[in-house]
Design a binder for these strands. Sequence first.
DNA 1: ATGGTTACCTTACATTGTAAGGATGGTGGT
DNA 2: ACCACCATCCTTACAATGTAAGGTAACCAT
Lengths: 229, 229
Amino acid sequence: MAAKAVRQPLSRERVLAAAVALADAEGVKALTMRRLAADLGVEAMSLYHHLPAKEALLDGVVETVVAEIHAAVGGNATSDRDEDWQTRLRRQFLAARQIMLRHPWVPGLLGSRRTIPVGLYAYYDGIVGTLLGAGFSHRLAHRAMHAFGSLPLGFAQEIFSPSSAGGSMEDDVAEADLAAMADALPHLTAMVATEIHDVTDPTLGWCDGQTEFEFTLDLLLGGLERLRA
Amino acid sequence: MAAKAVRQPLSRERVLAAAVALADAEGVKALTMRRLAADLGVEAMSLYHHLPAKEALLDGVVETVVAEIHAAVGGNATSDRDEDWQTRLRRQFLAARQIMLRHPWVPGLLGSRRTIPVGLYAYYDGIVGTLLGAGFSHRLAHRAMHAFGSLPLGFAQEIFSPSSAGGSMEDDVAEADLAAMADALPHLTAMVATEIHDVTDPTLGWCDGQTEFEFTLDLLLGGLERLRA
DNA sequence: ATGGTTACCTTACATTGTAAGGATGGTGGT
DNA sequence: ACCACCATCCTTACAATGTAAGGTAACCAT
């Protein structure tokens, strides 16, 4: 009875926040206009007074998360100068990863966007600034940005990420087939046998654990350091 | 009039080939059951006698491209032993990239799949075999695979790839805003000014040119070589 | 010929995004 | 106080999509 009375008017921010929450809870697949409106206690068409189309909704959602990353990373200018470029970028990328682990559907959505979130430019500008400050040439800084790929956003690869929908990644390989696989894929099975994963490691996508993320990151940082002018 | 007479029966392979061709021609967005059926001179529901659902269609399409890569890469066992591991992987990944340039919609689709294409296991097994043969430990081989990310498939990053839909990537930044951007993003604009791209460089996604692909590849290969046992 | 299997078609429905326009309640001008 | 206005939200409706259910026609071994 009081539920209707406390309903405050919608706004772009409230819609986007609800969209992020919905995607976090049930995946981006569940993020439909009708469902989102229902979560907000409203009808679907009402959303269109705050957003022009669903594409804009998704753009806004991505932008929201990027802003979250940018805030978590750029907000703390703690002791700007007493850390070298590698330490700084490492800290930033790992902070981004913490955000991503709370929004595991973002990589997939990010890949489908047609326009680049505006906030991302500012974030990238900071990274380039760090590189230039460390003595990188424009050319090397440019290539470093490419080499980083999606690392600045906190994830390494999004191929086969079962984030967006259910899918346990285990049950598609039956026990019986495993023996048959062993001689068709000798090297892979040997490697997996040696390198069985701690599934406790928080995972983003296909086997993208904290350990592998940091390994890749340090491999690139170390390689770039050696190329630095 | 004779068009109907020459119509040979459908098959999973014919459907998948037509799907790949359609995606190549008009993007994965145009790949609907009705449209695909029309291209095959058939009604939509007829496709379901060869594929159980659209998800299976997409899985099959991805699998087809992976098979194409595997064939282009694994088929030529030319002089298996007289090239070192770096040369071999470099050649393979670059060959994969040639395939990808013909199917620029694959990265986006690949990221959305829930199941891993079966052919990919075989391809990856070969890569692991190369690493192990070069003296890599299982652990280092494992991490190398993670570090490679999507490089074995011929692309570096798929963030903001405008492949799936139209979008010229230039026209969203008006000339007027460019001056305003310059002081908001000093480092980025300086870098872009120095590093203006040859747009002639075949591009896969956001600024992922051949040069950057090879740079990232060599950075990783060189870094791994130094870690090799 | 005949019963059955296979390949394709027709129809229909649920779900999605969204166009078009209606109701309603608060606000500022007079 | 009144009234025109406008932002906000709702109702209805439509097109496009994936696909369930069942129909039809050609072929094939018996």
